[in-house]
Design a protein around this nucleic acid. Structure first.
Lengths: 174, 174
DNA sequence: TATTTTTGTAAGTGATTACTCACTTTTATG
DNA sequence: CATAAAAGTGAGTAATCACTTACAAAAATA
């Protein structure tokens, strides 16, 4: 793990737990055991550090969503989307907490990947003959956010809730 | 409007738009056209100002939820809960944005009123003979959060989505 | 009216902020 | 091996931070 990577991971950790504005570059440098100047050599400024942290996380997010975008069975698409939050490993929780915080704070919040997912979901509901596929897709997004909140914020077990949501769409199956 | 009230409203405005940590007491004082010292005379410190801002907002929130807690018809309880976000006037949007931001940042986030609502919803689903009333109540909470996000963050019109959710529970009525 | 209390201000305080700069060490390259 | 580029440091910088203090104006109270 290079010093650049250590800075990134410590920045993620502190940004997620205390917030971007409440975290100083000195704090990050101290905890990462590097000089404060190195942060600015690698990331130009604090905002650049945040963007770098987000970028590596977005790549992770894309890895979750991409397989769903390649699916053809509409039921599988919907089920996979609902189950997304349950497949996030604990070591990534901090990143997602950061992302959900920034969602309410920053205009440049990256949501391209999620938009693609929603389009895929809309198409899935359309092919299943749902009345208003766009609204149904939006509902799934709400479910995902709700499940993510349950996991990340309350630290709860989402399996029961996930099952409940799944049965709303696949009553007579399984 | 007293100077104390002007400080409170400007603090709410800035906390909601830029975030608590990114907003300085000097900024608040300047925009409120008062001396910075007056903030500390009235609210002791910055944290006290935030708590005062939250307190006056929580009282508003309780006013929304209290009528539902007094209802007896389970269907009316559920419907009223789902419709809650649509009844928030535009002038209160900033406060709710602040509350949703703090939800992800601060441990002392006040959620008593929402807990009461969820208990009421659980009882409502129970009396209607639902299989897992607690999970159903949790789902309603997720719907509320989702609708609030749609309104506050994306500035969208939530009526279509609200109707969609309502029909999930009251298919053969209206 | 005299006095106390509340409200308000201006000018500070030391600490901390993001960031820079001169410089050394390490790594890569011709 | 020589040289240049990259990585890394430590001691700075001006600006800003939350907050204090001494004091004046206004309001309330006696």
């Amino acid at each position: 793990m290079s010093k650049k990577e250590i800075i990134l991971s410590k920045a993620l950790e502190l940004f997620a737990s205390r917030g971007y504005d409440a975290t100083s570059t000195r704090q990050i440098a101290t905890e990462a055991h590097v000089s404060e100047g190195l942060i600015f050599r690698h990331f130009h400024n604090k905002e650049g550090l945040l963007e770098a942290v987000l970028l590596q996380g977005i790549n992770k997010a894309t890895q979750y969503i991409e397989p769903i975008l390649e699916m053809t069975d509409p039921r599988q698409i919907i089920e996979s989307a609902i189950c997304l939050p349950t497949h996030v490993p604990i070591e990534e929780h901090e990143f997602w907490k950061l992302l959900y915080t920034l969602k309410w704070q920053r205009a440049n919040y990256p949501q391209e990947a999620f938009d693609q997912l929603q389009q895929k979901l809309t198409a899935a509901f359309e092919s299943l003959g749902f009345e208003s596929p766009e609204l149904e897709a939006q509902l799934i997004e709400i479910y995902i956010d709700g499940l993510a909140t349950e996991i990340l914020l309350r630290g709860g077990d989402p399996t029961a809730l996930t099952q409940k949501i799944l049965t709303k769409y696949f009553k007579n199956e399984h």
